[in-house]
Each structure stands twice: as structure tokens, then as C-alpha cells.
Design a protein around this nucleic acid. Sequence first.
DNA 1: CATGAATGAGGATTCATTCAT
DNA 2: AATGAATGAATCCTCATTCAT
Lengths: 223, 223, 223, 223
Amino acid sequence: MATRSSRPEHAHKAFENRKRKPELKREAVLLTAAHLFLKQGYRRTSMEDIADRLEITKPALYHYFTSKDDILVGCYSHGIANILGRLKHADEATGTGLEKTRAFLHAWIEVITTLEFGQCVVSLDDNELAPAARREVRRLKRRIDRTLRQRITEGVADGTIKPCDIRLVAFAFGGAINSIGAWYDREGKLTTAEFSAAYADILIDGVSMPPERTPRPRRSATK
Amino acid sequence: MATRSSRPEHAHKAFENRKRKPELKREAVLLTAAHLFLKQGYRRTSMEDIADRLEITKPALYHYFTSKDDILVGCYSHGIANILGRLKHADEATGTGLEKTRAFLHAWIEVITTLEFGQCVVSLDDNELAPAARREVRRLKRRIDRTLRQRITEGVADGTIKPCDIRLVAFAFGGAINSIGAWYDREGKLTTAEFSAAYADILIDGVSMPPERTPRPRRSATK
Amino acid sequence: MATRSSRPEHAHKAFENRKRKPELKREAVLLTAAHLFLKQGYRRTSMEDIADRLEITKPALYHYFTSKDDILVGCYSHGIANILGRLKHADEATGTGLEKTRAFLHAWIEVITTLEFGQCVVSLDDNELAPAARREVRRLKRRIDRTLRQRITEGVADGTIKPCDIRLVAFAFGGAINSIGAWYDREGKLTTAEFSAAYADILIDGVSMPPERTPRPRRSATK
Amino acid sequence: MATRSSRPEHAHKAFENRKRKPELKREAVLLTAAHLFLKQGYRRTSMEDIADRLEITKPALYHYFTSKDDILVGCYSHGIANILGRLKHADEATGTGLEKTRAFLHAWIEVITTLEFGQCVVSLDDNELAPAARREVRRLKRRIDRTLRQRITEGVADGTIKPCDIRLVAFAFGGAINSIGAWYDREGKLTTAEFSAAYADILIDGVSMPPERTPRPRRSATK
DNA sequence: CATGAATGAGGATTCATTCAT
DNA sequence: AATGAATGAATCCTCATTCAT
């Protein structure tokens, strides 16, 4: 209990001073918690882990959050708010359904790779949440999914996207994007923007070499 | 307390008879455990949950496995063995790199959707494993990834796959496929084969409408 | 969290104004505390509960009382002072021992039903008190008991009360009266005075039908 | 954790042997818990207190009971079962309403003074219980009260009990009897039977000297 | 005076695991 | 081979109380 390791590598400075904007401290708790939840999982992260890392005591956490669940909900809320915010931007993009879909994926990928909160939304298991909170979180998640499907549907309608099983496509895109958190290295060489573009293109355009645009007729197209 | 009951809907019959191959029982434990791990997560599944579902006692589990970890490792092993087995088949397919890649994805998807063990490998958090086991599991996972990358590389080489960031493509495919477990409904309408094909095609061919193959100049290209 | 709100239905107005006699505030705290202690029990009432209800902060409570215990002691003191005060009145009544006993019970019942402080004395568990306070409280409680016994003794002496085990009678009366708090509804239909009289009569006169006043001599009274 | 005082003064021998009727152990837990609950109150009695006294570990308690609440419910059930059992006996007594009421009080007092479980029912605060358990307990408690009122009503009907406010009478009787636990000394000089009789008589017959109904002299009063 | 913040000391409960039989 | 019993080590959470401002 005495010799706890863990230097404050994070934004724990918020707790250095007693009198300080409580919002900052809430934020600091969420940031730290999000980090640990992603690294070790929700269950394996104890309130003590979080407190230790912030160099405060366990009960102090309960000053800002009523329960561990509440902290998780906080991470989700932050993440979802961010995602929806950026996604709305992307939504205002004009263009073909295909372009809008691409913009949507871009934005989504960016949130995931930029914010740990965003990653919480896609990586953490909302089964941990109490029923009420879970319902709320799922409602918001569904909203993201629904928006994506609408873009795809538009694309199919205006002929820029191939007729396809929209549900399946949305799942494939979602899965590919959500998995990013598991391996993406924030310090990698690609810039976030480059990465987002490249990743979105892979998903949208596929990888198969497009048929040569030769005059000769071909039948054996991809499928 | 609570409604622990739950009729043995699974393969617990192995325990009905006293005289029975222990191998069968080990199998039954793994099957049940895999099911619960996937449904509730490893941490939230207690040894008692597993024992209850099998209608045996907790210590009996320790007859077949030395620890909860050991059970998890068992699930992984089974899953990996299966995946590698089927993937080897797919590998023997001949054809262009593109075709081989497609066959590989097919096989992979099939394992995931068919076997709970397969799903364990991709859905469960290997952070739960002891270091040694974790290393082993990761080695095997990497093997799958490596194989996929090789197929893609072949495709790029023989011109059937567009030049692309292979690492990125492999991740996208992996993510999309591994996420299947989260939403795929074994009782759905599509047959496994149909589903695998459709899903693999989405990933490989993308969804953007291929440019018209006419000789005339085009403007409204995909991007 | 939770619905702590609860408009100040009680005498918390003492805290509305900054400049105010601290005595009033002490009183307000005690009143609120007594109410909560009786409703939820001492242990289940947290300092925060009290503070919330008064719409002040927790540390503010420590301005007026040194500890939770101290508040409880305050409730007891108030209650005992009140009880003894009223009981002295009753004591000054003249008449037979029976009449004085009846008057005593009256007064006692009235204190219990009228004052929450009075009820605290009889309903709250003095085991919660620190040893010193406990001794004091018990001394005072004993004083009440002793006074009652004296009245009864007088009644036996002057022939208005049947010879009986005085200790037992005092306990029975005490128990019946102290239990009132558990079910008595301050808003009930009986007025306090009516109720007190009726209740005291039951205790003193019993419920068995008095033997017919026939001319024949009888010895073996009720039993 | 090492030097715990508390010699096993109670029936903890049930835990001396590993293989033993679990019913005995459940019973031992309940007995010990009832004792402590009565002595220190439910809230102030920790699971560790109970475990220590039984010289077992805390989690072992959870082998026999699912929660602290469950233990309390156990005490209540035992107590209520006993009370109702004995009360049924008393109920079968024939005679006037007055006699039946007296028999009922007898029985009730006996249970209280004989069994700690019985005392739990009347002394412990059922507010501690979870809503469901509380409802059940209250239902049973009400049954006792209802039976008492019926006896009284019968007495009023057959003219052996004075017309009175039956609800009030039942409360007075209940209060006086339930308070017994607070002061009754099992080791006292009166035998339980004598005590029960005396106490019931006080309640039923009151203490006021019956009006002399003959001019002739009297000698020995009622008792 | 008053307050938001912080804390130390429990307390109930869970669970993987090990004994004794 | 299998079981009921038991345990140690957590883990979440509560609360009376004290600081720093």
C-alpha cells in the first residue's frame, strides 16, 4: 500500500491543487480510466488502479463519479459525443452517396485513432454496464450505424455504389474500423489523415485490380 | 440464488455417464466454457458458471484442467488448430493471388461462423492469458496474418491485386472478419457458404461502382 | 446520485438567513436529525442525509456538533428534558395513587406522541452512545421508571391499586407506551388527548369485564 | 486477524468437523447471528463478527447464506415459525374469548422469553430487509396481530371483554410484550411460566383495584 | 463562518483454488 | 474419481471526519 509504482505519466496535474475546476478533475479521471480500460479491460481495472495512477485515494474518485459504472458511462458519453459531432460534419458534405460514405468513414476512423474516448466506444464491452446505461449507449451506437447505412443506400440509389447487402457492408466497415484500436499505433509513420484516407479507400474500393478498360469485351468480372 | 439452473442445452451429455472417455469430458468442458466466455466474457464467467452448466461440481473441473487459464488456453488451442487446418486447405488452392486471397478469406470466415472455438481465438482478449500462453497464442495469430499477407503479396505481384499497403489491407480484412462474432447470427437466413462468399467479396472488391468500361472518356470517376 | 433532493419540509428555515442565532440552527439540526433517526435508524442516517435535508454542507454540521454521536446525545437531552418537565407537572397532581399513576401515564404518552425528541429517547438504541453518554441517558431513563414505580407503590398503599409485582407492571406500561412510536400516526383521527386517555385506561384498567356487581359475596376476584 | 478474542461460547461445535450435517451449521450460524443482532443490532454486526464467533472465515458464511440479509431473514423465519406454531396451540384452547386471549398472550410471551429467534422477530428492525423479504416478514407479523385481534373481538362478543378500541388494545399488548426482550433476564428468579402468567394478567386485568361491590370486608386481594 | 475536496477505516461480496473425505 | 466445505485475496463502495481555502 505504500510503495506504489506508477509515475503520473498522464494528465493528473489536475489533482495537484486542491482548489481547481472540478470539471478538469472529472476529465482527468475519465482520461486515465479510458486509458486503463483500453489497456487492461474494464474488469481488470480496479478503482484502485485508477486512483493510484492519479495519485489520489480511492474514495476521492467517488467524489466525481458515483460508481465504476458511472466512469465507464462517462467514457462512452464523451466518445459518442465526439463521434457524432465529427460525423455530423462529414454528413454535411455534399456529393454522391459514394463520396458521402467515404467522408463518413474518414471521420469515423479519425475519431477512433485520435481519441481514446472514441476507442472506448468501439472497443469496450457495453455488457459491463447496468441495463439502463447499456440501453442508452446502444441507442447511440445504433445511431452511428444507421447513419452509415443511409449513406450507403444513397450511393446505391445514385448508382455510385454497387447494389449490395447494405447490412453486411455496414458490418464489414464497422468491424474493420472498430478493430483499428487493437493494433493502430498512434506514433506510427502515417499521419492520421493519410491513414484515414488509405483505410477508407481500401474498404470502399476493395483491392481487386479493376478490369482493364480495354475495348475488348469481358465477362468474367469480379463476380 | 438467482436462476443458475439452465437446462443443459449443450454437449454436457458427456458427463451423464460415469464411465466415459476423459477426453470427451475435457471436450465438453471446453465447449461449454467457450460458449460462456463468448457470451459473457472471460472475467464474468466464473468456474461455478461453467460447472453449473455442465451439472458437475467446481472441483471436478480441476480434474480436467489445472486452472481457469488452462481452460482458456484450451479454447484457444482448439480454435487455432481448427483455423490453421482449414486455412491450409484453402492455401492449397491454385489460381491467381486474388483468387487465393479470396479462398483464404472464405475459409477464415467459415471457421469463425462455424466454430465457437474459432471465435474464441479472434474475440477473446488474450491479455487474460499468462505470459507464456499469450506469447504462443500471438505467435499463432501472427501466423494467420502472415499467411494472409503472403496471398495478398502474390496478388499484387501477378497483377490481380492493386498495389496497396499490404499491412493495412490485412488489418482491415482481419478486423472485418474478426468482428463477425459480435453480430453474426448462426440461425440467420444466409447459409454459411453464401454468407462467407458475400462477405469476402465485399472486402475484396469493395463497394464502389466500377468505372464504366466504355472506351469513351469518363469524368465522374469514383474519386 | 439518487434522489437526495427532498424539499425542506422541516424547520430548516433557520438556515435560510445567514445572520441568525446559532442556537436556532443547532435546534434545526437536532430536529431534522431526530426525524431521520426515527425514520431510518441512527446507523442508516448519514451525516450527508442530515446535511442534505437542511440544505447545508456536511462540514457545517461539525460547526454545531462535534460528531454524529454528539447529535444523538443532543436528541436525547432534549427529549429527556421535555419528558422530565412534563412529568414533573403530572407529579404535582394530587389524588390517589391510582389517579396519579394515570396522570403520569397520560403525560408520558403525550410526550411520546407529541415530540420527536421524546420518541428518540424511547425508540432509539442507546447502545449507539458513547459509554459516558450512555450512562447518563440510562440514569435519566431510570429516573422516569423510578417515578412511575413510586406512583404505583403509592396506589398499592392507599388501596387504589391491586397488590402486584411493581417492577413488572412498570415494565409493561413502559413497553406499551414506548412502542407507540412504532405505529402511532400523528395525523390520525384521535386527538392526542383522547388517545392518551384511552391508551392509559387500557393499561391501568385492563380489558377484562369487571365481575357483575351481584349482591352475593365474592372473594376470588378476576382470577 | 490473528489474535481474535471471543471464545466459542455458543453452539459452534457444529463447525468443528468438516463433514457434518449442513443443517446443523446453518442453524449454528443463525443462532450466533441472532445473538449478535440482538446484542449489537443488525447494522453494527459485521459478517466478520459472526464468522469470528463461529471460528470460521467470512466467505464460509456465504456457503450457507447468500447474503447478510439472507441471514436476517433466516432469523425472522425461524422466529415466526416458532411463534405461529405455539400460537396455534394456544388457539386451540377452548373457553371464553377472554380466556383465549389470555392463552394467546401467554404463548406469545413464552416464545419471546424462550427463543432468541422469537425476540429477533419483535426486536429487530425489518427496515433492514430488502423490499421483497420485508413484505414477506410483515405479512407474517400481521398474521400474529390479526389473530390477537380476533381473540379480543370474540371476547367482546361473548361479554368477557369490555367494549374497547380493539386496535389500540392489540397495540398496547403487542408493545408491552415486544418490549420484554429489552429487559427480561433469562436467568431471573421467576420461571418462564410464572412470568408469562403474571405479565399476561397485568395486561388483561389491569392494575386498578376493582370497585368494592359489597359492604362486607375483604381480606386477600386478587393476588 | 462556510465549503468543496479528500481520506482512512471498514464492510459486504465474489471467486479461483485447495482440502478432507 | 468426485464432492462438499473452506479460504485468501481481491474489489466495490460507504461514511464519519478533517483540511485548505
